[in-house]
Deep mutational scan, measured.
Amino acid sequence: MATKAVCVLKGDGPVQGIINFEQKESNGPVKVWGSIKGLTEGLHGFHVHEFGDNTAGCTSAGPHFNPLSRKHGGPKDEERHVGDLGNVTADKDGVADVSIEDSVISLSGDHCIIGRTLVVHEKADDLGKGGNEESTKTGNAGSRLACGVIGIAQ
Rank of each mutant, 00 (worst) to 15 (best):
A2R: 05
A2H: 12
T3Y: 10
A5G: 07
A5N: 03
V6F: 09
V6T: 12
V6H: 10
V8M: 12
V8D: 06
D12I: 00
V15D: 04
G17D: 03
I18Y: 15
I19C: 04
N20L: 03
N20E: 02
Q23Y: 03
K31W: 13
V32A: 11
G34S: 03
G34I: 01
G34Q: 00
S35R: 14
S35C: 10
E41T: 03
L43N: 04
H47C: 01
H47M: 13
E50V: 06
G52R: 10
N54G: 11
A56S: 14
A56G: 10
G57T: 13
G57L: 03
C58L: 06
S60W: 15
F65G: 08
R70T: 09
K71R: 11
G74K: 02
P75E: 06
K76V: 12
D77N: 12
E78N: 14
R80M: 06
V82Y: 08
V82H: 04
G83M: 07
D84H: 06
G86M: 04
G86D: 00
N87F: 14
T89P: 07
A90I: 00
A90V: 08
A90Y: 02
D93I: 06
D93R: 09
G94P: 00
V95Y: 15
S99W: 15
I100K: 07
E101P: 02
D102T: 14
S106D: 06
H111Q: 14
C112V: 02
C112Q: 06
I114L: 07
R116S: 05
L118D: 01
V119R: 02
K123L: 13
K123A: 09
D125S: 11
D125A: 13
D125V: 09
D125H: 08
D125W: 07
D126V: 06
L127M: 11
K129P: 05
G130I: 05
G131Y: 07
E133W: 14
S135N: 08
T136L: 15
T138N: 14
T138L: 15
T138F: 07
G142F: 04
R144A: 15
R144C: 10
R144V: 14
A146F: 01
I152N: 08
I152E: 02
A153W: 07
A153G: 13
